[in-house]
Design a protein around this nucleic acid. Sequence first.
DNA 1: TCACAAACCCTTTTT
DNA 2: GGGTTTGTGA
Length: 718
Amino acid sequence: MNLSEITNGLNDKQCQSVTLNNEKNVLILAGAGSGKTRVLTHRIVYLITQKDIRIDAILAVTFTNKAAAAIREKLSILLRRPIQSMWVGTFHGLAHRLLRAHYEKARLTSGFQILDAQDQFRIIKRLMKENNIDESKFPIRKVQWFINNQKDEGIRAQDIDPGYNYFIKNNLEVFELYEAHCQTNDLIDFAELLIRSYELLKNNTDLLNHYQARFEHILVDEFQDTNTVQYKWIKLLFSGNNRVFCVGDDDQSIYGWRGAKIENITKLYTDFFPIETIHLEQNYRSTGNILNASNALIAHNTNRMGKSLWTDAGNGELIDVYKARTETDEADYVISSIQKLITDDASPSDCAILYRSNAQSRIFEEALIKYNIPYIIYGGLRFLERAEIKNALGYLRLIENSADNVAFERVVNFPTRGIGNTTVEKIRTFAQDNHTSLFQAAIQISSTLPTRSANALNGFIKLIEQMTDNTKYLGLSEKVANLLNTSGLMVHYSNDKTDKAGSKKENLEELITAAQQYNHEQDSEMNEVVGFISLASLDFSGDTINQNVQLMTIHSAKGLEFPYVFLVGMEEDLFPSRQSKDEPHLMDEERRLCYVGMTRVMKKLSLSYAIKRFLHGEFLHAYPSRFLDEIPSRYLNKIKAKFSATIQNYNADNTFNQNITPKSDGQLFIGAPVKHAKFGLGTVLNFEGQDDSVRIQIKFKQVGTKWLISSYANLEFV
DNA sequence: TCACAAACCCTTTTT
DNA sequence: GGGTTTGTGA
């Protein structure tokens, strides 16, 4: 590959960034939409093809799995060679990889498990209960928050001096209990992944030397989002003989509440001296009006490093600002605008609705259903965080590793099989006293229990042992399918009357599909099942290819772009959030968040707010967000009159995804009439995927619109 | 021990 | 409004 192939299509500044002397540390201050990910990937290609850097000498770190996957994909296309040995991933993913590879040195066993936020909450709750710490005085969420904050700072319980602070003293007590519990049970929470892998390297000089020598080039994306431990982690890996290439934008720092430190960018100048800085300010995404408005907004922040985006793309349309009477009116306005766009040939997936908090999604979801427009909501309760999925994974975990106590607790009496709290408490006590796993404890004490409990418990033990035997030689997805049936989960959710739409059962079926699609190669340090389970806790980004209107928080929209964006709920106390209004630095972060939201837009931005909103069970008066006042009105088109939204049913003949070719059997097409055993007659609205994983959206006459997996739904084309 | 109903709580953002 | 905990009766 020659140099011009790499720099082709890059502007001067981008080109300069990519081809900078490889003996230099580099900081790229890159504005929104200035092509920073592009620069990062092309830099890697440059190093490998022009400077003969080995593929496994590269370490590239990002924050989201989505971003890591995108970089990986781009690299394999550009380099046309296998890149498995290159470390590209999230901080959490790479830390996990390090811990798996060196678990003994990290004081872990090979079966250590990752705790997600829910698991962590449960454990803290139980520890507090067991130790008679009053939940009402010390809310569990706050305690959890305290613990995670300390860890994000790299601080352990032993490092804290509570002084005479009553609250810190109590939090600290739980922190100590929690640390001990996790250590004895081999549990690692998100923050622990980072701190533990940092300590691993710090305390093992030979290991550190090895990785320092191996990673000749360390590249970090979204540097403004690094927290203290992450920064220390990078600094530790930096020996002075290797080089860093950091990309960041201080105006897009929106994770301060999670411990991210913007100051880390400025610390680069001293800790990684000398470092070359390049500014990327030409924006390729948005129109002039949107950029000028965004620049004007962010200019209200103090302490910026200073940067102003520009474009040569022309002014484009003004930004619409819609004043709604209520949140229902707002939703109607947004969805009917989207419908118009679709009629004018836009794809639903070109449209995004962005909001400050997840709770705001519901009203838009309802309106989308009313208009019959396909949509997808990111965030909220993600697929793999749902109870039914976690229960299923609980069985998988227990079969894989009978010492997995978190999984044991989760499934021992689910579906209910007569093993009550009293019995579980006895098992816990025995396990604790004899330093054994809950499963082993259950086996040993079952004979000492009253007959009824003993029978129930023995039934469970037999079930797990049998499942372990029966699935030993099965592939991952068969394993999952098998355990769903033998555990009784499938039957339980099939009979679940509260699950009217059958969506829990559908989710379980989808889990089998997910297992089928799981690509094991990228986690070769682990066996297939462990890899899948870890993925389930670290990566919940589902498929992104779809034909749906995108709904998400502004936080999760970071790094993405959409032709049409509706930034909704622009009201004081909502956005900016009420919790931020008394603290200037929090308000600055809200403003950056607004800036991030606005700069996602390619063509047309609509802002909206309601003057009356039904919130927490009552109607509240709302005032327009201060951010609206901070945008000069010459960029705005204020729509004051009530939008006359007429609700029309979305016409299925007016197809919006004709670019998807139906399968050759010709049965599946948009508008096709189908029959489902349970839901009755319906019409195909949309579909995605291929072969066995085809998902079809159907509008049923009786039960409304649903997404079904065709291989399970047993659809009849009529 | 379990199922259901009533009461009670919260309510920002996420790897 | 909605998810979770608590209380009650079987």
